[in-house]
């Protein structure tokens, strides 16, 4: 870099510092949500982390535009989804040994928020992937129309998937022994 450029870099550097700071805040607030979203339909942790990282790096690069969106996170989720789909397509074979993972043992009741969240992720992974991602976004507070826009489905489909997913999760939870609401439990 020449001296001439450096003298011009003053205000630009400041702008960049502000951008970086807002992006850093955005990143640390939302990274878990993106990982959670991808984990709902992909069991391979490494691949999920990779796609999340890719999406945020891309967001950092485009931050000047993306931060002006109403909900920048929607953009990041969409990019992360696209990145993960590409990784999935390039994967040679589905790791079959992972499919039966932990399905045989009866899970114990979660006692912390962390355990409960892990259990929800495992439930989602047992649903058809399209339904799982819709349900995950719904659980995270996105509206049906937003979910439709982010997943490329019609609103009708999102509603239907959400209902089906909810019903299937209910069934799976009951099979796992979680049928009675807390408080009404015997003893």
């Amino acid at each position: 870099m020449t001296g001439e450029h450096e003298s011009d870099a003053g205000p630009e550097a400041l702008d960049q510092a502000i951008l970086d700071a807002t992006f850093a805040g955005f990143f640390s607030r939302h990274r878990p949500a993106v990982e959670r979203f991808l984990s709902s339909w992909e069991r391979d942790r490494g691949m999920v982390e990779e796609a999340t990282q890719d999406a945020f790096a891309a967001a950092g690069q485009k931050w000047e535009d993306v931060r002006r969106h109403d909900k920048p996170l929607a953009w990041v989720l969409l990019v992360a989804r696209r990145k993960l789909l590409t990784y999935q397509r390039n994967r040679k074979r589905r790791p079959l040994e992972l499919l039966g993972d932990g399905l045989d043992e009866q899970p114990t009741a979660p006692s912390t928020a962390h355990e409960a969240a892990e259990y929800v992720t495992r439930l989602l992974q047992r649903l058809p992937p399209h339904q799982a991602e819709v349900m995950r976004l719904s659980l995270d507070g996105w509206s049906g129309r937003e979910i439709a826009a982010m997943t490329g489905h019609t609103y009708n489909t999102v509603r239907s998937y959400r209902a089906d997913a909810r019903q299937r999760m209910q069934q799976l939870a009951e099979q796992d022994g979680f049928a009675e609401p807390t408080g009404r439990r015997r003893g």
Binding site: P110, A113, Y119, M169
Partner: peptide
Amino acid sequence: MNLDDILAMASVRTPTK
């Protein structure tokens, strides 16, 4: 404990250290 309880429990999850 049922699905609603678990979902409610999971929703207040904060990241660990």
